[in-house]
């Protein structure tokens, strides 16, 4: 096995581990806010690593075969990572804000400063 194949396998393993932890967190945590923690952080990080594995594979193919289609694949995946980093926190923020506005209380919360300012 070549060293870059090993790197790709490690990236896929890290990505799947964190995505899996995100799923477990989604099932285990008590309310919508804590679940969003698991659903946004873990899946963003996991998806970045699986995408990095795709980029690594594409570059390895580009070097070994010289087919320029692989460059397109690598750049598209890189662009997907940037979009993921921009849209994932915005989506989580929108869900959390909508949940709080429609009256979902955080469970087991020790403090809720937002509730105090809301009329």
């Amino acid at each position: 096995m070549l060293w870059w194949e090993l790197v790709i396998y490690i990236f896929v393993a890290i990505g799947l581990t964190f995505n899996g932890l995100g799923v477990i967190g989604l099932l285990r945590f008590p309310d919508v806010y804590t679940r969003l923690h698991a659903a946004t952080k873990a899946t963003t990080f996991g998806s970045i690593f699986t995408s990095l594995a795709v980029i690594g594979w594409a570059f390895a193919q580009l070097i070994s075969t010289g087919n320029s289609w692989n460059l397109t694949l690598a750049l598209h995946t890189f662009f997907a990572i940037i979009c993921l980093l921009l849209t994932n926190p915005v989506g989580a923020h929108a869900i959390a804000r909508a949940a709080h506005r429609s009256g979902v209380k955080p469970k087991q919360a020790v403090v809720d400063r937002l509730e105090e300012v809301k009329e």
């Binding site: 964190f18 806010y33 698991a38 873990a42 955080p106």
Partner: peptide
Amino acid sequence: ANLDVAYRVITGKIRPGI
């Protein structure tokens, strides 16, 4: 952050609030 979330997913130790 991800190691932290992983730790809380596994142990369930949380003390949330806004």
